[in-house]
Design a protein around this nucleic acid. Structure first.
Lengths: 379, 379
DNA sequence: CTGAAAGCGCTAACAA
DNA sequence: TTGTTAGCGCTTTCAG
């Protein structure tokens, strides 16, 4: 007996010949789904009635409703989301675009977005770009096709003129189809562009981290993870510089080390600085991942943290609190960032009054065990 | 001048009065997207021609194609994915259902799925359940509506009769609409059910971990993270027991400690065991997160790892290699697991011959610094 | 090579 | 209270 078949035989379907119960059992065979018409026929009512019962937005006799619901159950019917979408109803979806979901900060942002979206009945489409800006472009267009209610772009970028122009195009392009561009942890665009921005106090966190080291007495602080033009790196670097300036400590080019936000960059930068005999008593790593590499670099040189050299990171990834010593770092409320991004854009969409389209969450230093006053001796 | 407006004025639209360029600038105002008809009108051709040019699957004059493409550019037109889907074309989507994307193992699986899906032109819908099985049900139905090509359920579960029945229903229900249930890191269902299963050698890894400790000379090994009925926990526990049996070491109930797969569970279990004066020289934590808690528990009791007590984890999360000492653990190829899940289901769908519907990836112990022979003294 | 028109599955007037 | 029907935007025969 056919698995999905109803109790009593169904009269010949409209068109396509009757598949057997197991629809897609064959490789990729497009199954014959039951449609609202099947349900209507089975229940002996019209499609409109079925629609009404299912939407539950219109008066329907108790008995009719029962008949319909029974038919639905018998046929294991679910509505076709695409048809609903086309007809104007249908669940909205939010698109989330990020480099790599395995990076802790991104995963947290993603979790925040997804939770808030789900809470408000939206679906969440996730696309990763592995840092490929070309793919980002393709993805945004794809999302425009998908009628995504919003497209949330996550994470810092190479901040160029070309980039700004592309984003402006994205913003307008999405706006023109009723969608919305959201920049999360990314610098804002021109004020007149239709986009929502959710930032965190990137520079302030770096300022705080540096000030923490300075107030401990450090004067030679190695900054690791500078990246010319990368928005996040630039913000952190300028927070570092700003604090130095406020403490009347001269900046030194040899203390600002280039490097990506990866563990390996931290390792290499510290090794090089050591090899070049650059004097420093503390390391400010632009991310916790970089700090991990720096830690290894220090250790392989026989330097203890924090006794010989202090180390501070940025991001406060869960791992930070598990290291030995526990890593002092800058806490960024990533999950909250994601949640806020979703909230703002959905508030605006749901017509909630006073929905802002620009927010900045604050960051703060979390002092743990990897920072201490500089050792009195040399270095 | 209207942003999306064409060069020369367009004759009055079919129905709704002409919105201005900026479509959705108002909160959630459903914008007037340009449709294929707009493009056709603008290009002075029929919609069929536009469709053909865009699909590029039919001979079209060079000049006609040019006209169409120009119109597309002028109107910044993108097709409506829902309409395409309804008409039978359209990008497929894969649904990924997991407890929490911030958990390292899940994030890695997710990354694997997403990458493989993207590589093969599919979109990836992510839903989290926070361990709520009720929500899992709702999500699967939602995915059925969405016409997801596959629904990938990730991670261990409470393995009950009720669960098995629900999964059977899922499997058949998805199959009946041409979709496919995929179980990733979850026990398989009955053989005759339409589902794809991608497992890893859960029990084998635990056996290896335990054997590693046994061969170092440990005989009293605390297992932390037992959970009656939880499939993953059960598998690991039985690997532990199996190794003990093979080494002719008697199992002891007081050595098997209950607890969730969370850091806190590890901490509590070790504290309790210590308080109860249970003798042990090694700890096998059911996950690396549990190992983290166990490590803290050992340390606060003044016990050194591995000098006083050896510690081994499971999962090989990135953090494992950053701990002091570096954590010995069982490596699970999570990303590969996700990639495989996507690959199998898409192979089958794309009609690639010989696509299996059941695979098991292997695991292996990664020996690092947290395990050593037991100390000669007491304990 | 191009166009007209019939669906795809659902919703929402409009009628009855 | 229920049914009929005209779209929603796109693809795809079938004619020309």
């Amino acid at each position: 007996m056919a698995t999905t078949g109803p109790g009593k035989p169904v009269s010949a379907s409209t068109a396509r010949g009757g598949h057997e119960g197991h629809g897609g059992s064959g490789a990729g065979a497009p199954a014959r789904r039951s449609t609202i018409r099947d349900v209507a026929r089975q229940a002996g009512v019209s499609v409109a009635t079925v629609s009404r019962v299912l939407a539950d937005n219109y008066p329907v006799t108790h008995t009719t409703r029962a008949k319909v619901l029974r038919a639905v159950r018998q046929l294991d019917y679910v509505a076709n989301a695409h048809a609903k979408a086309l007809a104007g109803t249908g669940v909205e979806t939010i698109a989330l675009v990020l480099d790599d979901i395995t990076w802790s900060a991104f995963a947290q942002i993603g979790a925040g977005v997804e939770q808030e979206a789900a809470r408000r009945g939206r679906l969440c489409l996730v696309c990763t770009t592995q840092g490929d800006r070309q793919r980002e472009l393709a993805v945004v267009n794809l999302m425009r096709e998908q009628h995504a209610a919003a497209v949330i772009l996550v994470g810092g970028i190479q901040y160029t003129t070309e980039y700004r122009e592309r984003m402006s195009r994205f913003a307008r392009s999405l706006d023109s189809v009723g969608s919305r561009l959201v920049l999360c942890g990314r610098p804002p665009l021109a004020d007149d562009l239709p986009a929502t921005v959710v930032e965190y106090d990137n520079e302030g966190g770096a300022y705080g981290a540096t000030a923490h080291l300075l107030s401990l007495g450090h004067r030679r602080i190695l900054f690791v993870g500078a990246q010319e033009g990368q928005s996040t790196a630039d913000g952190r670097l300028s927070g570092y510089r700003g604090a130095l300036a406020d403490y009347r400590v001269a900046a030194a080019p040899e203390l600002e080390r280039e490097g990506l936000f990866l563990r390996d960059a931290g390792l290499r930068a510290v090794r090089e600085a050591l090899r070049e005999q650059v004097a420093f008593t503390a390391v400010f790593a632009a991310t916790d991942m970089v700090a991990l590499g720096a830690l290894e670099g220090l250790r392989e040189a026989g330097l203890r943290v924090p006794d010989d050299v202090s180390l501070i990171g940025y991001d406060d990834i869960p791992m930070a609190n598990e290291l030995t010593p526990r890593l002092t770092t800058v806490h960024v409320p990533y999950q909250e960032l994601g949640r806020t991004a979703a909230r703002l854009v959905l508030d605006r969409r749901d017509g909630v009054g006073g929905a802002e389209d620009r927010t900045r969450l604050s960051t703060h230093v979390v002092v743990r065990g990897s920072t201490a006053p500089p050792a009195p001796g040399p270095r």
